[in-house]
Amino acid sequence: MSYSQHPEQHFIHRTGWLRASVLGANDGIISVTSLVMGMAASGASTHTLLITCIAGLISGATSMAAGEYISVKSQADIEEADLKFEAQELDRNPHLELKELTQIYIHRGLSPELAHEVAVQLTAKDALAAHARDEIGIVDATSAKPIQAALYSALSFSMGALFPTLSILFTPEQYIESSVIIVGVISLALLGALSSYYAGTSLWKGSLRVTMSGILAMAFSSWIGSLFQVTPL
């Protein structure tokens, strides 16, 4: 008997790297652009703005990598502890664990007989994997990957922070502030659309959500910076 192909494209496997990448790029654009706008509003020189931008890029990228690694590593530690505990329970009380798995499938809509048969077969194949997936909720597509998350965060933050940096480098001094704003808004809109594309959601909604949040952050930073006045050397 032949079976027709029925390919389906799901997006859940992108959760780990997409979340870290979007968070990093969004933070890179907003934080560094807001930092530059705040300094520009205070009257800082172009040289000061460039140094501020580079410092924000380096410190932000390293901070994002460290923070993301620690955060996701904590999740990985919890998953590892749960798996270790579940493995011990499978050794100590295999019959109780089988009943527990059966009850899970009954709650999901299977008849008691079918639920028991499914639990028996899955336990025979890989008991720990079955309990990890159906009892604890740990699946490979969404499991914690600390190093991957840290690398994606650092790289995406750096890429996001490059936009305001390049704006300062290639814009005449009298237009720097407006250029940084325009480039920041455009880059946020593109980031929102790109992240929505990879998440399989509306490009317009994602773009608008990211852009509006960034504009609010940049406007607030600019207002704070305007409260101070820096005398150029």
Rank of each mutant, 00 (worst) to 15 (best):
A66F: 03
I70M: 13
D82N: 03
H10V: 06
H47P: 14
A127P: 04
Q103Y: 10
G56P: 10
S59A: 15
T48Q: 07
Y105M: 05
S111E: 10
M39H: 03
S45W: 03
F85Y: 15
I30Q: 00
R108M: 13
I136F: 02
A44N: 08
L57G: 02
E79W: 07
I106W: 00
D126E: 03
H47Y: 15
T46R: 11
S21H: 07
E117K: 15
I70W: 11
E117M: 10
L90K: 04
T15A: 10
S31G: 00
S45T: 09
C53K: 11
I104V: 14
A127F: 01
I12A: 11
L83R: 04
E79N: 08
D82K: 05
N93A: 07
H131S: 13
N26K: 14
I58G: 01
C53M: 00
A61N: 00
D126A: 08
P112A: 12
S74L: 03
T52P: 05
R19E: 03
D77G: 14
D27E: 07
S21A: 14
D126F: 05
H131W: 10
M64E: 01
M64D: 02
L49G: 04
N93E: 13
P94Y: 04
I30D: 00
I78V: 05
L128I: 07
M39T: 08
G38K: 00
G16N: 02
E86D: 01
V118S: 09
F11R: 10
E68S: 13
V36P: 04
G109R: 09
D82H: 04
I58Q: 00
A66L: 06
G60L: 02
L122V: 05
I70V: 07
V22C: 05
T62L: 12
G28P: 04
K84C: 01
T62D: 13
Y69K: 02
I78F: 10
G109S: 12
Q9H: 15
A87Y: 11
I12S: 13
E117Q: 11
L18M: 03
T33I: 05
M39K: 02
M37V: 13
Q121M: 09
A65Q: 06
S111M: 06
N26G: 09
T46S: 12
L23C: 08
P112I: 08
R108T: 08
L83H: 06
I51A: 14
E68P: 07
A65L: 05
A129N: 11
A40P: 04
S45F: 07
G137S: 02
D91G: 10
A20Y: 04
D126H: 08
S42M: 08
V22R: 04
S42P: 08
A66V: 08
L122P: 01
S59H: 08
A124L: 09
Q9G: 10
A76L: 12
G24H: 02
R19A: 01
G28Q: 04
V36T: 01
V72F: 13
I58F: 09
Q121K: 07
T33A: 10
I30G: 01
V72S: 12
R108N: 15
L114R: 06
Q9T: 05
G109L: 07
R92M: 09
V118I: 14
Y69F: 13
L98A: 06
G67R: 06
A87N: 07
G43T: 02
L114Y: 09
I104Y: 07
Q121G: 00
L122A: 00
Q88D: 13
A115W: 06
S74H: 14
H13I: 01
K99S: 14
